[in-house]
Amino acid sequence: MADEPTPKQPEQRQPTPEGQPGAHETSAPKPAEKPAAEKPAPPKKDAPAAWPKPLDNEMVRRFRRRFGDAILEAVEDRKQAILVVAVDRLREIAEYAREEEQFDMLTDLTAVDWPKREKRFDLVVNLYSFPRNERLRLKAAVGEQDRPPSLTPVWAAANWLERECFDMFGIRFEGHPDLRRILLPEEWVGHPLRKDYDILQQDTAWVRENLGIESGQ
């Protein structure tokens, strides 16, 4: 993160003032686009900004050996292992994690929106290995127009999770068998968990038409 120079960095990194945890922050050409959380508080106050630390264990080395550049970063945050990977090889890495590294369960799949980044979404994949009793988090930056590969063929559990991700963030997964909205109505406009979607915002047209009321507020 902000304090460690990782060897492989696709873009030029700058230490972000607010110390955002987006693992490979690229505050693009740095125009003053409003930060997600207007909080220029210097993180120096809580002195030991200990996390995240670089992680370099046997498993990470195996991943690095196998995928080389595709493993952009390996860090540890609150003692939890995180691999930042390139999105175009996510599927391969996932397959490898399941087959070779025995991460047989997809615990969770979600995304985080960093609107001022060039690739605004972080795809977060939480894995668990029964034989090793270990968790691993894969993260991949996804741009708004990117179509990350669907993990449904690797873990069937990804089906609904990716649908939810699509529903909430508008991330379109390539090769998903049935990519539709899951929690919101099919015709809803907008993706609520994006940071630029206000908490009071709603698809007013839909609400009027289908619920027969002026507003859902």
Partner: peptide
């Protein structure tokens, strides 16, 4: 401190996990 954590417990119905991303403010980022 900025960063993220995933914590899960064994709820009656199964694994209940919370993935929280902090940006160093008083409100969770995600």
């Amino acid at each position: 401190a900025p960063g993220e954590v995933y914590h899960s417990i064994e709820a009656p119905k199964g694994e209940l996990g919370y993935y929280i991303v902090s940006d160093g403010t008083t409100q969770p980022y995600r």
